[in-house]
């Protein structure tokens, strides 16, 4: 009968564990974790275009979550979205001339409303309105393209071949893109080991459109993202002579530690938070959270 007891105790533990896991999932990994504890007050904001903004999306000031979107409706008679923001009572000193903007966290991230403080002495009250708003902008898309690895250029006008030697190519392989200033200009044709020189000979096929590359340009093996695919980046030099078919690039930079730093920068810039900040092209106050 001690056997019976141990079943009961073990089974009890199992059930408790299961429910504990459920409680954990429900409260720590879902939006319940974001429910405000205290009271909140409601503020109106009208946008021309809210993009993908959804109800219960976060409202942030300086990147800090202060509330959530309560409801989204079309303003009667106007082609304007009326968004009600529910903001925590603790943050009740938002100047009336503050600007509300629809931002995206990352390219694929959900959208949220960011509020930038104004200078007015009066604060928005419950039921009040933020008159100054900015809608979601297509600028983000451009930024996204810049940071993304993108596809290799489609070589419509034919290509010319140049060679480059690297002491370490990392995981570079045939088909990897070749980029200049982040724009794909060609692709890697082959990566071969050179036994006598103890390095790797990489053959690059570059689109004929880009035939104005100085012959003292440097080729470097970079990674898009931390574990993203690697590509060859070409940094233009200052020589008056241009690279021709069959030339070899003398200055090369192999895959090395430095790229970790660069990789992290790229990841942070495009991934966490918002793309705008990485480019420094916006007045967004939203930082990392």
């Amino acid at each position: 009968m001690s056997q019976r007891k141990s079943y009961a105790v073990g089974t009890g533990l199992f059930i408790v564990l299961g429910f504990a896991a459920l409680a954990y999932l429900a409260t720590q990994t879902s939006s319940v974790a974001n429910r405000q504890q205290g009271d909140s007050y409601t503020v109106d904001a009208q946008f021309q275009n809210i993009g993908q903004l959804k109800e219960r999306a976060p409202v942030k000031i300086a990147g800090v979550r202060v509330g959530q979107v309560q409801s989204i409706a079309l303003e009667p008679g106007k082609a304007v979205a009326d968004v009600k923001l529910s903001i925590d009572k603790r943050y009740d000193t938002i100047p009336t001339d503050s600007v509300a903007t629809v931002y995206t966290s990352g390219l694929l991230g959900d959208q949220y409303v960011g509020i930038e403080y104004g200078h007015a002495k009066k604060y928005v009250a419950n039921g009040g309105k933020l008159a100054l708003t900015r809608s979601s902008e297509p600028l983000e898309e451009m930024l996204g393209k810049f940071f993304g690895a993108g596809g290799a250029a489609d070589a419509i006008g034919g290509t010319y071949k140049v060679f480059a030697r690297f002491s370490n190519v990392g995981t570079l392989s045939a088909g990897s893109p070749v980029k200049m200033a982040g724009v794909p200009i060609g692709r890697v044709v082959s990566v071969q080991a050179e036994p006598d020189k103890l390095d790797a000979l990489v053959t690059l096929a570059i689109d004929n459109r880009y035939n104005q590359i100085p012959d003292d340009s440097a080729a470097a093996v970079f990674t898009s993202g931390l574990i993203g695919s690697q590509y060859v980046a070409i940094q233009p030099g200052g020589s008056p002579d241009m690279l021709k078919n069959g030339d070899e690039m003398i200055l090369t930079q192999s895959a090395m530690q430095l790229e970790d730093l660069i990789g992290k920068f790229l990841v942070n810039g495009s991934g966490s938070g918002d793309g705008k900040q990485g480019a420094g092209a916006s007045t967004s106050p939203a930082g990392k959270h």
């Binding site: 390219l107 574990i227 993203g228």
Partner: peptide, 16 residues
């Protein structure tokens, strides 16, 4: 996580 990170990094969306 490993797979998604790899794919999302292409779009700069590793935060997701």
């Amino acid at each position: 996580a490993l797979q998604l990170y790899h794919v999302l990094s292409i779009f700069g969306g590793t935060a997701a």
